[in-house]
C-alpha cells in the first residue's frame, strides 16, 4: 500500500511538472537581425541591443520566461522559424496580411511608418514617385522594399542590410532609401558619416505595427507573449523604452 501511495504521489508530481513545463516553457529562443538600428543592433561590446531587445526582455520578465537572443540575417529569418531553429522573431517585423497567412503574430507592440531618405543634393524629391527612372534601395523582403516596388518606373534595389543601402547611396549608386522611420532617423540624422549627406523628406507614408512572430499554430507561445506585452503596456514600460532608443 505504501508503495502504491508513493507511486501515485510521484506520478502526480511528474504530471504536474510536465504540465507546467508544457504550458510555460522555461526559456525561448528568439531571432533578430541586429542590423536595424536603433531597433536592433550590435553595440561596440558585441552585445545585441536596441528597442526590440529591451522590449522583449521586459515582456519575458512579465511573462516569467527566460529568452535567448540569436542574431540572424534578415534574408531567411522566416525560413529559420519554419525549420525550428528558434521559437520567435522580434526584428521590427511589420504585421502584414501576407505574413499573417504564413505565421502567427502577437498583439502589435509599436507603430511606425515607412519614410524616404535622399541625398541632400536632391532639392526636389518629396515622394518615391519623384525618383522615376532611378534606383531606390531598401532591405530585402522588408515593407520598405514592397513600397518601392509599388511605384512603377522606379527601380528597386534590395540589400542584405540597410546599412549597405546607405553606403551605396553615399557612393552615388542609388538615389533614395526607404526604411522604417526610426531607422531612417538613426542613419540620416544621427550617424556622423551621413548627417551632412542625407536628409529625410516628408512624413512617413504608411501606418504599420510591429509584432513578434511565432510559428503558425503555436497558440501557447502567442498567449504567453501577449500576456507579457499587456503587462508591459499597463506598466508603461514601453514608453520608457521608446524614449530611451527613439528620439
Amino acid at each position: 500500500m505504501k508503495f502504491l501511495r508513493t507511486f501515485t504521489a510521484t506520478a502526480a508530481l511528474l504530471a504536474a511538472l510536465s504540465l507546467t513545463a508544457f504550458a510555460a516553457p522555461k526559456s525561448i529562443k528568439v531571432a533578430t537581425d541586429a542590423t536595424w538600428p536603433p531597433m536592433e543592433m550590435v553595440d561596440t561590446n558585441k552585445q545585441i541591443v536596441g528597442y526590440d531587445i529591451d522590449f522583449l526582455k521586459a515582456v519575458a520578465k512579465e511573462a516569467g520566461v527566460a529568452v535567448v537572443i540569436k542574431n540572424t540575417a534578415w534574408d531567411g529569418i522566416f525560413a529559420g522559424l519554419d525549420s525550428g531553429q528558434y521559437d520567435a522573431i522580434i526584428s521590427s517585423v511589420t504585421i502584414t496580411k501576407e505574413r499573417q497567412a504564413k505565421y502567427d503574430f502577437t498583439e502589435p507592440y509599436t507603430s511606425i511608418g515607412q519614410i524616404l531618405i535622399v541625398p541632400k543634393t536632391n532639392k526636389t524629391a518629396k515622394v518615391i514617385a519623384d525618383l522615376k527612372g532611378k534606383k531606390v534601395g531598401a532591405q530585402i523582403g522588408t515593407t520598405g522594399a514592397m513600397e518601392i516596388k509599388k511605384v512603377t518606373g522606379v527601380e528597386l534595389k534590395t540589400y542584405d542590410e540597410i546599412g549597405l543601402a546607405f553606403e551605396d547611396m553615399a557612393a552615388g549608386r542609388i538615389f533614395g532609401v526607404v526604411c522604417d522611420e526610426p531607422v531612417a532617423a538613426h542613419f540620416a540624422l544621427q550617424k556622423k558619416e551621413y548627417k551632412d549627406k542625407f536628409k529625410i523628406v516628408g512624413k512617413s507614408f504608411t501606418k504599420e505595427a510591429y509584432g513578434i512572430v511565432v510559428k503558425k499554430g503555436n497558440k501557447d507561445l502567442v498567449a504567453l507573449l501577449n500576456k507579457g506585452i499587456k503587462a508591459v503596456k499597463a506598466k508603461k514600460l514601453d514608453t520608457k523604452i521608446h524614449t530611451k532608443w527613439v528620439k
Partner: peptide, 14 residues
C-alpha cells in the same frame, strides 16, 4: 540568386 532571394523573402517559399 538575388532575384530568387527577393522572391523568397516576400513569399516565404524558400
Amino acid at each position: 540568386l538575388r532575384r530568387g532571394r527577393e522572391y523568397a523573402s516576400e513569399t516565404f517559399s524558400y
